[in-house]
Each structure stands twice: as C-alpha cells, then as structure tokens.
C-alpha cells in the first residue's frame, strides 16, 4: 500500500489569469509525434483535408523544444522509452503527453512481448489516453477535445505531477535502465570473453572428450 504515491499538495489556486493562459494553451497545441508504432498512420488523415486538426490550432512541430504535446503513437519498446523520456524532459512546460492506442495503456497485443513496455504511466505522466487499436481520426479528435477541456480546467497537469513525484517515476525508470540483477534467472554466455577460432575449437574438442 505504501507503494502508491499520493500527492498531498494543496490544490493550486486558479486565478483568472491562469484561466486566460489556459485558454491560450488549449487553443494552440503544437504536437510532437513520436512515431513508434502503427498510430502514426492515423495522423495524416487527422491533419489533412477530411478531418483538419488545424481548426483547433493543433499542428505538427519539428522539435521537442517547440512542442506542447507529445504523442506516443503505438507500442513503446524499452529502448525507445529512453528516448521518449529524453524528449519529454526537453519539452518546455506546460507540456502534455498523450498515449495513443491500447499499447501505451496496458501493452495491447504486445502485452507479453519482452521488449515492449506495458504501462506507460509508470515511467512518464500521461495526461490523456485514446483507446483503440488503432483509434480512428474521429476518436483522436474527440480525445484532443477532451484534452482541451482538461487543460482549461487545469486537470492536465502531468508536467507538475512529474516534478512532484519525480522519485517515483525515476525509480520505475531505473528498474528498466539501471538494473543490476537479471529479471529471470539470467544467462551465462560461454562466449562472453570473445574467444578466437583456435580457442573455440580447443574448447569444442575438450567438451567432446569430456562427453566421451
């Protein structure tokens, strides 16, 4: 039970000014999409003529420094997660992170795959998840509008949660990246010292002799 991290900070007082700024933030979201998986293919139709995301001021941006919104479009492997965390930390506050499809939520169809993480929210704060495999453009737009509501109400505060609960997130990240013990029983590589051909053949002979 003590594993749950409960934030006991006071609810932030939202001034009129903050409300106004939130209006600007929600009406101008620049997104950085991290095309890890299949979700990226749903974004072009969402951006172009048919669904036209730019109506709401949402547009693509080239670098994390400029973006407000990080889209994780699909499954995330352990190696990619490292880059996602780096990109997320480079973004300027306030920043929002949207998990796209079922894979960032619980692993999706890759829940039993060894390289794919299952819960994105263990490692970075997720402000909004859009369920589906993959979500259609309508669902994406609906999700973004909900995110806009959350921003206006001040509920999309993942960046604040990340700062407050940094130890919790960092510990979960370190479980992947700074692990010292093997997860399962580990493995002893007989070739760990990178032997030469002669050594390998000698060892082979020795093993055969031992078997005899």
């Amino acid at each position: 039970m003590d594993e749950i991290y409960i934030t006991n900070l006071e609810k932030e007082r939202e001034s009129m000014f903050e409300g106004l700024l939130n209006y600007f933030r929600k009406r101008s979201m620049w997104m950085l999409y991290y095309c890890t998986g299949c979700g990226a293919i749903e974004l072009p139709p969402t951006m172009t003529s048919r669904f036209d995301m730019e109506r709401f001021g949402i547009g693509p941006m080239a670098t994390p420094r400029q973006a407000d919104l990080l889209l994780i479009t699909g499954y995330l492997s352990q190696k990619t997660l490292k880059r996602v965390i780096r990109s997320y930390e480079q973004m300027q506050e306030p920043k929002y992170l949207v998990g796209f499809g079922s894979c960032p939520i619980n692993g999706g169809i890759y829940w039993d795959a060894y390289p794919v993480i299952n819960h994105l929210e263990m490692y970075v704060p997720v402000d909004m998840t859009i369920a589906g495999c993959m979500p259609r453009p309508q669902a994406v737009l609906d999700g973004f509008q909900r995110l806009m509501d959350y921003i206006q109400q001040g509920k999309a505060d993942g960046w604040r949660r990340y700062k407050e609960n940094y130890e919790w997130y960092k510990r979960n990240q370190d479980e992947l990246f700074a692990r010292t013990e093997p997860v399962l029983k580990g493995w002893k590589d007989p070739f760990a010292h990178m032997p030469s051909l002669e050594e390998v053949m000698a060892e082979e002979e020795r093993r055969k002799g031992g078997a005899r």
Partner: peptide, 14 residues
C-alpha cells in the same frame, strides 16, 4: 490563431 500562438509561447517556460 497566430495571436493565440504567441500568447501561449510567452506563457511557457523557456
């Protein structure tokens, strides 16, 4: 839209 963008940019950290 550009006004919104500029105001938002100035409301962010940098």
């Amino acid at each position: 839209q550009s006004f919104l963008d500029v105001f938002k940019c100035f409301s962010k950290t940098s």
